[in-house]
Amino acid sequence: MCLGVPGQVVEVNGLVASVDFWGVRREVRLDIVDQPVEPGDYILNHVGFAIRKIPAEEIEETLALYEELLQAAESDMMSADVHGELEATAPEGDGHD
């Protein structure tokens, strides 16, 4: 459950932001997002509330994570090294704990 749509903040006015979703704008409330939000930031919108600021670098990080899964497929799947690599990208190593 929980339809979440990422959008980019265009304008912030107190607890209300105007957010662009691929050319459609909507007001999104900032009551429950846990980080300061500024124009240019990406947020995850659910039912008109920002529930998360999405740091741009973490989009890249997710892509890198998937890339590693695929590399693991190409190398020896049972290789302990590969699992070591994956461990490194597991939550403990995320750097935002």
């Binding site: 009551d31 997002v33 846990d34 529930i51 990080e61 994570l65 939550p91 995320d94 935002h96």
Partner: peptide, 26 residues
């Protein structure tokens, strides 16, 4: 396959270990 029981976060662009504590408090 590895018989490992653990939590893995494959959605780091949105999910952290603690989550959104401001929202949880509310």
């Amino acid at each position: 396959r590895d018989g490992q029981a653990k939590v893995e976060n494959m959605y780091p662009r949105c999910v952290t270990r603690e989550g959104n504590t401001v929202a949880q408090d509310q």
